[in-house]
Nucleic acid binder design. Structure first.
Lengths: 188, 188
DNA sequence: CCTCTTCTGTACCGTTCGGTCAAGACCATG
DNA sequence: CATGGTCTTGACCGAACGGTACAGAAGAGG
């Protein structure tokens, strides 16, 4: 039989695309098979626990990407202001190239998925925490810094909703720009 | 047979609850039947076109509520600043009592639902437009007013995502408070 | 060459899906 | 008391679901 020699990482990327477009419930195995070209056999070879396994793998890949690209600038910020700029730029680029869908946000809907609840919580909690700490280091008082971080993360997520609803990617650009400015408002 | 004499409006409210908790795909007819106590027969009596019909009815009910409670203060604002305060207060109260789920936001995910795309678009477009106009009347320049309106609506939607993920309703309270202040920042 | 492991396609399983239907129960009329 | 329209039920339908089983094909190592 045909042997396409598929990599698991490729499968995860392809799955992410389908989940983004269809949602987890909308991505039936037949649809996945059709849109990725990966057969059931391969799917269950790479993800023995089935669809939940695929969901976990996809979320882990997103998380890894954020750790490397979005959170990294915030972990050892020599220049906190520059780090804020870098992280927001990375976020904007990421979602614009992913059809304005955050897979972690998708997981907060269609409940009865306590399976991934902790992963979702820590994704957002870490994001807010790291951003708040950096803003504080840039010279904003603790409580105010945390509030600004919460506002920024919420703004990004809300911008994604709005961009999809209005079918207008510039919403993301605008909101992210203004959020970045607001994070460092009143500083040197 | 038992005749509970059910009202269609009651059915819509009950359906909204199930859709909020489970999402549209997660709310199978069996689940709906079980959680609302409404049998299949009644469901298809009130909503002859099936699940799509139920979705439409639920969205229409939400839209009507927003028209009356959230958009109304923005339609003939004698005191624009007060209107902004009133609309944001209504929004906060609405979502806090609805488990932090916006059904229109739910519809922007799990695509291949072009059926409701226009309703979703106009819901958000009207919201932004009305808010922008009121902020402008309060004394903010046109472009800036629109940017502030986009930011506020996005902030609300993002706050809902964050509140669910972190299981912390105070996120909504905080974000909405700060958004309201920001809408009218720099005014008398 | 043989063999073992790693993939891949496909037929198939039981379950659940959205949707239909005929028949029964209730209420408003006469 | 009849009658007709308005609900409501529960059994039922074909299709699609997620998941399993297994045989076959392609490398790697000897």
């Amino acid at each position: 039989m045909a042997r396409t020699v598929l990599d698991r990482a490729d499968a995860v990327r392809a799955l992410a695309g389908v989940f983004r477009k269809r949602g987890f419930d909308g991505a039936s195995l037949s649809v996945v098979q059709q849109e990725t070209g990966i057969g059931r056999g391969s799917l269950y070879h790479f993800f023995p626990d089935g669809k939940e396994d695929m969901a976990r793998a996809v979320l882990e890949e997103v998380r890894a990407w954020f750790d490397e690209q979005v959170f990294a600038p915030l972990r050892t910020p020599e220049d906190p202001a520059a780090a804020v700029g870098a992280t927001m730029r990375a976020v904007e680029e990421y979602f614009l190239s992913r059809h304005c869908v955050c897979l972690y946000a998708v997981m907060t809907l269609g409940q009865d998925r306590p399976a991934h609840a902790e992963a979702v919580r820590s994704y957002f909690a870490d994001w807010v925490e790291l951003l708040a700490r950096t803003v504080e280091q840039a010279g904003v008082a603790g409580d105010e810094a945390r509030a600004r971080a919460v506002d920024a993360v919420a703004a990004v997520q809300g911008a994604l909703v709005l961009a999809r609803a209005l079918d207008d990617d510039t919403v993301v650009t605008g909101v992210v720009d203004r959020s970045r400015r607001r994070l460092l408002d009143g500083l040197g």
